[in-house]
Amino acid sequence: MKRNDGGASRLVYSTETGRVCPDCGQPMAQCACKALASRRPAGDGIVRVSLDTKGRKGKGVTLIQGVPLDDDALVQLGKQLKATCGSGGTTKDGVIEIQGDHRSTVIAALEKLGMTVKRSGG
């Protein structure tokens, strides 16, 4: 049987420690890869607000990216912005999505909170 990984093998289980992380090689109890992967990279401090219609059957969605907050605070900010706009939406992967074109409302609300905001895209 031919191997696709170029012949390199990696340890996935040890009888001494049990399951082993395939990325760092540490036992799963001591692995820090998940914690490092869950943190978002630091941005440039500018919040970007744009309108996106791709993959949504032509319906517009306001995207808010680059907010320098942790996940829990980002969810709370998303709830606050959705209530301000009177619309639905979601928060996932560090991006707040609000249904509809609410760019001007969102920009005003974020500037009121003291954030540097730019309108990106068209």
Rank of each mutant, 00 (worst) to 15 (best):
V95M: 03
V117R: 04
S38E: 14
T15K: 06
T62P: 04
K54Y: 11
S50I: 01
D71A: 15
N4S: 14
L69M: 14
G122Q: 10
G18A: 11
A73P: 00
K82W: 02
V61F: 13
V12D: 05
T53V: 11
A83F: 05
S104V: 09
V49C: 06
L74Y: 03
T90G: 12
T90D: 14
T105D: 11
G25N: 10
A8F: 13
C21S: 10
R39T: 13
G121N: 05
G60N: 03
G25M: 09
D70Q: 13
D93G: 06
L63W: 08
G6S: 06
C31Y: 03
T15E: 09
Y13E: 10
T105V: 13
C31K: 07
E111F: 06
I98G: 00
E111R: 15
L81N: 00
G89N: 03
V49W: 02
R10Q: 07
R19C: 10
P22V: 13
I96C: 04
R3E: 12
I107Y: 04
M28L: 13
A32H: 03
R3P: 00
R19F: 14
K2Q: 08
Q80L: 11
D52G: 00
G89M: 03
A83P: 01
C31P: 02
A8E: 11
L11M: 14
A37S: 10
R3L: 11
K59V: 13
D71P: 01
Y13W: 15
V49T: 02
G7L: 06
I64V: 15
S104F: 10
G60D: 07
G100D: 03
Q30W: 02
A108Y: 04
T62W: 01
V106D: 00
Q30Y: 02
G7D: 05
R19Y: 12
D72M: 08
R103T: 13
C21R: 03
V47H: 04
T116K: 14
L110Y: 01
R19I: 07
G88S: 14
G58S: 11
I96T: 03
A109Q: 08
V67W: 02
R40C: 04
T53R: 15
T105Y: 04
L74F: 04
D52L: 01
T62K: 04
K54T: 14
K92T: 15
P41N: 12
C24N: 08
D72Y: 06
L36E: 15
E111G: 03
K112D: 12
